[in-house]
C-alpha cells in the first residue's frame, strides 16, 4: 500500500492528450503527459491504474497499459459507458483530468527468474501489456514468455503490431492468438481462450500465469489452469468493479473486506480463494 503523495487525493491533475491511436473499432489508446509537453504528473508501475476523467462527464478507473519513461502514459480505453463514450470523441490536444497511481500493481519483483505465461481476452490485454513490456524491458530477469490472447474477431484484437511483429521477435517468446469465430481474413487459431490454453497445455513448472479478460473468461481460464496443475500461488489475476474514489473510501468495490482499488486490482488466486466468492 502506498503513501499519499499529493494532499488532495480526490482532485485530479490536468494532463494533455498528445496522441490518440485507434486500436480496434471500440478501443483507442490515449497518450498523455503534462500540459505543455514536459514530463508526467506521476509514475505508474505495471498493473497500476489511474482515474481518467473527462471533467464535465465523469471519471473512470483505467489500468495504465504502459509508461514510457518520462515520455507518456498510455491508456487503452474501450468505449462502454458515459465517460468513455465522450472520451472517444476527443482530439489530440485535449486536456483531461488524471489522478493516481492507484492499486498494488503486478508483483514484478516476485516473478523474477520465472517463466511467464500471460493469458488475456479482449481489452484484458491492456493491463497485462504493462507487465509484458516490463518483462521485455528487463528481459534477462525473466525466463520464457508465452502470451495467449484472444478476441471476438480479428478487428477486435488489440495492439496488433506488437502481437504479430514486435513481440514474437523477442528472445525466448511465443505469442498465440485466437479469435472466437472463423473469418476469411484470419488464418490463425479459432476458438475461445480457455480451450486454446488447454490445447497448448503449457507446463506449470517454474511458471507464473497472469490472466485478465472478461469475468467469464477468467473463470474458465482459472479452471483450466487448475486442471493443468497450476497451484493457486502460481496464478495471478486482476479484478475490476465499479469505482468512484479509487482510494478505498467510497465503499463500492469491496470483495469481502478488501477494496479492489486499494488492495487490488492484482490478486494471487490464493488470496482470492480466501475472499467471498463475489468476483
Amino acid at each position: 500500500m502506498h503513501k499519499c503523495e499529493c494532499e488532495q487525493p480526490l482532485v485530479p491533475v490536468i494532463v494533455e492528450v498528445v496522441d490518440i491511436k485507434d486500436e480496434t473499432p471500440d478501443i483507442k489508446s490515449f497518450f498523455v503527459k503534462n500540459p505543455g509537453g514536459q514530463g508526467l504528473p506521476f509514475n505508474v508501475a505495471p498493473g497500476q491504474c489511474a482515474m481518467v476523467s473527462y471533467l464535465p462527464v465523469g471519471e473512470s478507473m483505467i489500468s495504465c497499459t504502459w509508461q514510457e519513461e518520462q515520455e507518456y502514459l498510455q491508456f487503452a480505453i474501450k468505449r462502454v459507458g458515459l465517460m468513455t463514450d465522450e472520451l472517444h470523441q476527443i482530439e489530440v490536444g485535449q486536456k483531461i483530468g488524471l489522478r493516481g497511481p492507484y492499486g498494488n500493481g503486478f508483483p514484478v519483483e516476485a516473478c523474477k527468474g520465472k517463466d511467464m505465461l500471460f493469458i488475456a481476452g479482449g481489452i484484458g490485454l491492456a493491463p497485462l501489456r504493462s507487465f509484458i513490456k516490463y518483462c521485455f524491458k528487463h528481459r534477462e530477469d525473466y525466463g520464457k514468455i508465452k502470451i495467449i490472447y484472444g478476441s471476438r474477431s480479428y478487428a477486435d484484437l488489440c495492439f496488433k503490431e506488437e502481437l504479430f511483429e514486435l513481440w514474437p521477435q523477442q528472445k525466448n517468446t511465443e505469442v498465440f492468438v485466437t479469435i472466437d469465430s472463423a473469418e476469411e481474413v484470419w488464418k490463425g487459431h479459432v476458438g475461445f481462450v480457455p480451450s486454446y490454453l488447454e490445447e497448448l497445455n503449457p507446463s506449470p513448472n517454474g511458471v507464473v500465469a497472469v490472466t485478465c479478460g472478461p469475468p467469464i473468461m477468467i473463470k474458465f481460464v482459472l479452471g483450466s489452469l487448475e486442471k493443468m496443475g497450476y497451484t493457486d500461488e502460481q496464478v495471478i489475476t486482476t479484478l475490476e468493479m465499479r469505482m468512484k474514489c479509487g482510494i478505498g473510501k467510497c465503499g463500492r468495490c469491496n470483495i469481502g473486506s478488501e477494496y479492489i482499488c486499494l488492495d487490488g486490482p492484482v490478486f494471487y488466486l490464493s488470496q482470492l480463494r480466501d475472499l467471498p466468492q463475489e468476483w
Partner: peptide, 10 residues
Amino acid sequence: VFLTRGYEDS
C-alpha cells in the same frame, strides 16, 4: 475510513 490506510481524504 477517511483518514487511514494510505490516503487522507482532504
